[in-house]
Structure formats: structure tokens, C-alpha cells
Simulated assay, not measured.
Amino acid sequence: MAKRVASVDKKRCVACGVCENTCPLAVAKVYHGCYTVVEETLCVGCGKCAKSCPAGCIEMKERTAM
């Protein structure tokens, strides 16, 4: 399992869908047109969503024990 996971600041997310289109495993999804949700158990921690986010609301964090 990856050491990092994407974390979304839902208050800053503008639900543009760039991360959804960038994620190679399609684990970033825009939820009801409001904000992005990342399925943390499936995230491989590549960081592509965080790099592509125009709002800068996605950051990579250390994965905590699940």
C-alpha cells in the first residue's frame, strides 16, 4: 500500500473535474457537483491529482493506519 494519499480541502474545491480526469485509477470523483472525494483505500499516492488541481486544494499526506 502506498505511503501517501491524496487529501482534498472540500471548502476550497471548485468541483472542476480536472483531478477526476487526471487520476490514472479513477479514484478521484466529483461528488454531486460540489467537491472532490478520493477513495483513500484505492489511492496509490502518485500525486497527479494534486499537481493538476487548479484550485490547489489537493495535497498529498502520509497515509495513516487503516
Rank of each mutant, 00 (worst) to 15 (best):
K29G: 00
V44E: 15
C34D: 13
D9S: 13
C49K: 04
C43R: 06
R4Q: 14
A28H: 07
D9I: 01
G17T: 09
A2Y: 08
A50V: 03
D9A: 10
C46Y: 02
L25H: 09
R4M: 15
G33S: 07
I58Q: 10
G45A: 03
M66H: 10
G56R: 12
V18K: 07
A50Q: 08
S52C: 01
K11Y: 12
V18R: 07
Y35T: 01
V30Y: 02
C23A: 02
R4G: 03
C49D: 07
A50L: 10
T22P: 02
S52V: 00
V14P: 00
V38G: 04
K3H: 13
V14S: 14
M60N: 05
A28N: 09
M66T: 12
V18G: 04
C43V: 02
V27K: 05
A50I: 06
A65Y: 05
M66W: 10
A65C: 00
T22F: 01
H32I: 02
A50D: 06
E62T: 06
V37W: 09
K10I: 08
E40N: 08
M1D: 14
R63W: 02
E40C: 01
A28D: 09
I58L: 14
C49M: 07
C57F: 03
E20Y: 01
C16A: 07
V5K: 11
G56C: 04
C34Y: 09
R63E: 08
G56Q: 09
A55M: 04
K61Q: 13
N21E: 14
M66G: 11
L25Q: 11
K29H: 03
M1W: 08
A65K: 14
C34S: 11
K51M: 12
C46R: 08
C23H: 03
M60C: 03
E59W: 03
K3M: 08
I58D: 12
R4Y: 14
A2Q: 14
T64Q: 15
C34T: 12
M60I: 00
L25A: 04
A15K: 10
C53D: 08
C57M: 06
M60D: 07
C23G: 04
E62V: 02
N21D: 13
S7R: 13
L25Y: 12
C16M: 09
E20I: 02
N21R: 14
A15L: 10
V38P: 13
C13H: 11
G33C: 02
P54Q: 11
G56T: 02
C46N: 06
A26L: 04
G56Y: 05
K29E: 11
E62F: 00
L25T: 10
G47L: 04
T36E: 12
V44T: 14
M66P: 11
Y31S: 07
C19N: 08
K11P: 00
K51I: 00
Y35L: 02
A15Q: 12
E20Q: 15
K51P: 01
S7E: 15
G56D: 05
P24E: 09
R4C: 00
P54G: 06
L25N: 12
N21I: 01
C16V: 05
A15T: 10
C16N: 12
A6F: 03
R4L: 15
V37A: 04
D9E: 14
P24N: 07
C16Y: 07
M60F: 01
V27E: 04
A26S: 15
